[in-house]
Write a protein that binds this DNA or RNA. Structure first.
Length: 535
DNA sequence: AACGCGTACAACCGCGGGGGT
DNA sequence: TACCCCCGCGGTTGTACGCGT
């Protein structure tokens, strides 16, 4: 279709056929006899021939198509054409919101296993899903958005909780439990404990006065980054903030506006020798992560005096498979909704840094898959971070492009913000909204959210979050959000901290206005910016 | 209108697994 | 056990289209 010019191209041999010839195979008549096989777009006539062939002979034995039908296409091309376009019951058109959500969920569990994902999406092909995801990934990466919607991340995290005792990453195919009960939501006591402990922790993104410092940079660097605190460069700090390799702190090597990226880190409060939980959304939900390894949200510390925490971290790269962006650092790898259809016997201790591969069952590792499981898995499997940081960055990451890492880091932070605002997290929206000028609660798609952005502002501003993944009647997947503990907790927490909900409402309005102000700046909506909304 | 850019999508390519011999 | 063949999968490429400037 797109390659119209190929209609008139000189026929070329299918590579496979060429290989077959070389291998002595493909003896199917003319193929082996040197008949050139067409490449490029299929014509309707060819389609008709192929359809007719399949009708008569059924699927399979694709190399025989050319022989029996005279179609000058290699078997591989025929199979692809049939599978992706001619096969009955194919669903055409763009993905629905439900499908998008499911894809994200599946990808968070499976990684780039398109065919398996396609099995969960009737009428959709692996190629279609792959194209969608890749495009989406690119777009979101460019916009500095999280790869996964917050509920996916949360779900993963919840699954992670459940799976903690097992030491398993994912049940994978073993489960074949298509969907977990929707009401399997659990709130561990520790969640509430953490809530209490972290009252006053504010998820803030500081917008510098200096317009040259991107909001994301600030986000990533947090309050410990100049000019917001007097901390020394994180890289030179003593290891009182230990960043595990798996937590994917990224080094923005190119300097400008990149600085150090350590989207996840803990802050150890020196005065109390207590790990000050730096991030919130998932932390309170995961006992294991919350107190030790949780590195999700960047909060100011209690009483808002974040700069006193001397947060820092080391930058570490995390290698991921291509197109896998470690931009969501939260979530677990336990089987959650929907459960992984995979039966991936993941050696949780196998964290081979191989850039590719390792994805197939039997050898899969979340580390390699680039899924949320991988991310969280590493968090969990590595030693507790406290005083245990070892700089594995130079060992584990072979070739992670810096820009990817950066975008990933950005994404993680963006995700954090989305989550905050999405769910009125007691750590998030509530906190933000009490001091933050803007929140857009009208978003209906997690796919087009707040991008990274440079803008100037007052001394301290909160990063506006454009899009909020808001469960609503418009979103048939709202039911998924029953698993949002934040939602359940927000009210209570908010009441506890602020006494009334009005603050949030007001803050949302203010934030919305602020967002508009910001969006009027340099950001291009064409790149998936502030005001991109799903149709 | 022209251009540039981003996106969507079809198709190609290489690799590896599984089954048969 | 080794080899061959077929098939499927995932990564990548190339091009048309749409939109903004």
């Amino acid at each position: 279709m797109k390659r119209v010019k190929n209609e008139n191209e000189e026929d070329v041999l299918c590579n496979d056929q060429t290989q077959s010839r070389l291998n002595g195979e493909g003896n199917g008549g003319s193929v082996g006899g040197g008949v050139v096989l067409k490449k490029g777009p299929w014509t309707s006539a060819e389609d008709a021939i192929l359809i007719d062939y399949v009708r008569k002979h059924g699927e399979g034995n694709w190399n025989a198509v050319q022989k029996h039908s005279g179609l000058s296409r290699c078997g591989k091309s025929c199979r692809l054409r049939w599978a992706n376009h001619l096969r009955p019951n194919l669903k055409k058109g763009s993905f629905t919101a439900e499908e998008e959500q499911l894809i994200a969920q599946l990808h968070s569990e499976m990684g780039n296993r398109w065919a398996r994902m396609a099995a969960h999406l009737p009428g959709r092909t692996d190629n279609e899903i792959k194209n969608y995801w890749n495009t989406r990934t690119k777009r979101r990466s460019r916009a500095g958005l999280p790869l996964y919607p917050p509920d996916v991340s949360l779900r993963k995290m919840q699954g992670n909780q459940r799976g903690q005792g097992t030491g398993r990453i994912d049940d994978g195919d073993r489960g074949h439990h298509d969907f977990l009960p929707k009401n399997n939501y659990e709130i561990h006591d520790v969640i509430f404990d953490n809530l209490k402990e972290n009252q006053g922790i504010l998820p803030i993104a500081i917008v510098p006065e200096n317009p040259d410092i991107s909001a994301n940079s600030i986000l990533l660097n947090g309050l410990d980054s100049p000019p917001y605190c007097n901390s020394v460069p994180s890289s030179s700090l003593p290891n009182h903030h230990h960043l595990r390799e798996s937590t994917m702190s990224f080094l923005g090597s190119s300097g400008t506006n990149k600085n150090w990226f350590y989207p996840f880190y803990h802050v150890q409060d020196h005065s109390s020798d207590k790990i000050v939980q730096s991030f919130g959304l998932h932390s309170p939900l995961d006992p294991g992560l919350s107190s030790h390894n949780s590195m999700y949200y960047r909060h100011s510390l209690s009483n808002g005096n974040s700069s006193t925490s001397k947060p820092t971290s080391k930058a570490v790269k995390l290698e991921l498979p291509s197109l896998q962006y470690p931009d969501t650092g939260f979530g677990g790898w336990g089987a959650t909704f929907p459960p992984s259809p995979l039966n991936e016997s993941v050696d949780v201790f196998n964290q081979s840094p191989l850039p590719h591969g390792g994805l197939e069952s039997g050898s899969s590792s979340p580390h390699n898959s680039g899924t949320l499981e991988a991310i969280i898995y590493q968090k969990k499997t590595l030693p507790n971070s406290k005083n245990n940081y070892s700089d594995k960055s130079s060992h584990s990451s072979t070739a992670t492009p810096v820009d990817r890492a950066e975008s990933s880091a950005l994404n993680m932070n963006e995700t954090e913000w989305e989550d905050y605002n999405d769910h009125a997290s007691p750590f998030g929206a509530t906190s933000i909204l009490n001091e933050c000028p803007a929140v857009n609660s009208n978003a209906n798609s997690w796919d087009k959210l707040t991008p990274s952005q440079n803008f100037s502002g007052n001394n301290v501003k909160y990063e506006p979050v454009d899009q909020v993944y808001t469960p609503s009647s418009e979103n048939p997947l709202s039911m998924l959000n029953i698993t949002w503990p934040d939602v359940l907790l927000a009210s209570d927490w908010h009441e506890q901290c602020y006494g009334h909900e009005k603050n949030m409402t007001d803050a949302r309005d203010n934030l919305t206005d602020y967002k508009k102000h910001v969006a009027g700046g340099s950001y291009s909506s064409s790149t998936g910016g502030y005001f991109m909304h799903m149709a």
